[in-house]
Design a protein around this nucleic acid. Sequence first.
DNA 1: TCAGTACGTTGAAATATTTAATCAACCGTT
DNA 2: AACGGTTGATTAAATATTTCAACGTACTGA
Lengths: 224, 224
Amino acid sequence: MKILIIEDETELSKSMVTYLHRESYTCDTAFDFDEGMQKIESFEYDCILLDISLPGGSGLKILKALKDNNKLDGVIIISAKDSVEDKIAGLNLGADDYLPKPFHLSELSARIAAVIRRKWFQGSNVLVYNELTIDLLAKTVSVNNKPVDITRKEYDLLLYLASNKNRVISKNAIAENISGDSADLYDNFDFIYAHMKNLKRKLTAAGSDDYIKSVYGMGYKFTI
Amino acid sequence: MKILIIEDETELSKSMVTYLHRESYTCDTAFDFDEGMQKIESFEYDCILLDISLPGGSGLKILKALKDNNKLDGVIIISAKDSVEDKIAGLNLGADDYLPKPFHLSELSARIAAVIRRKWFQGSNVLVYNELTIDLLAKTVSVNNKPVDITRKEYDLLLYLASNKNRVISKNAIAENISGDSADLYDNFDFIYAHMKNLKRKLTAAGSDDYIKSVYGMGYKFTI
DNA sequence: TCAGTACGTTGAAATATTTAATCAACCGTT
DNA sequence: AACGGTTGATTAAATATTTCAACGTACTGA
């Protein structure tokens, strides 16, 4: 799952990245208004953490832009505790959640998990596709109720495709989702092939159907 | 197990912290209304001790906020003996328990233990996993009914994982749970490895299966 | 239809990361 | 001061990730 952190305090931003990375999220960062706008325009994110007070322009303007582009789902406002008007303005614009500074990273992580569940999984913790289930809380994948031993990248890959079922997902999108930073340019997708092969092998060996189809020249599609 | 003490009398707060610390609880403190609100908003606790009469605002308002956030489980009201209306208001709002001042710390501790048992272990005093049992009252761990000599951190670690069985628990979460202060960023998790090794060694030496599996890149999982 | 080419799959090797184990320093208690 | 428990640093081991090269397969245009 991919998160954009728009926050000018570099120390805070850095510790968020570290913590969230350990929680299996991949993070992008933006440190001012312009960079924030640029990232939201060029990439897709599962969750956006948005500081209101930013150099170069108010975060509320970014929020407005997100709203106009129908990308409000998954936005969490973070802002100084006393800015009540920021909170009201943010929630009025339709942000999903509001977290006053200072906050504990575990709290942030819990809010992100809730937002993502709401956005992608109708608030549920478990995705079920016939014999295949993905448990978001336990971070496990099972086939016929037997857990499958899966690595983190494989899990990310499966979750990403499954949460976009019936859609063709480009390899660029996959690379950005399961790998580090959107700034990276990928000259080849060999690593995707490798993960895909291992994932498929493990799932089918466990008795699952192969729900992931490759779409020649386009990407991959999870179809139930 | 993590406890939040919202209490303005510093002496009382300090003695509670000391006592509860000896009882293997880790404690956070808040000394007025605002601090209390901030802590409950930004962190998860297994039990919250809430004084009703606080500088800056009534504890009942904190209780209301907890109720609105579905975090009422594990709240114990502490208040002057004669405030019958506080008691009624508190229990009406759904607090778990009520303890009139002055009280014995042992009484407090017993109530906390009861609240935690109710919240986490459906009122049971003992967790049993085949040959392995964890006695919450005695704070002991046994294998085949023979007690195992275990340190406090090891006990915390085992209890935390066991009470989240079949879930992968991140090292972030483990660090926060077993480490005393609420510091939330750790630059390394070596101390977790050390405790983990000692815990596993003691349990297997005592004849227990190794129920704690490491999940590479994700954390640890207790599986029966 | 058929070669030609781009794309996808595979398995193995190389690299990087995470976890384990050991040992030493630290800290609070007694 | 001595002790056990806890934590941090270092090295070793295990595991995951990425790269690479060889091979299949699907599309393209003549």
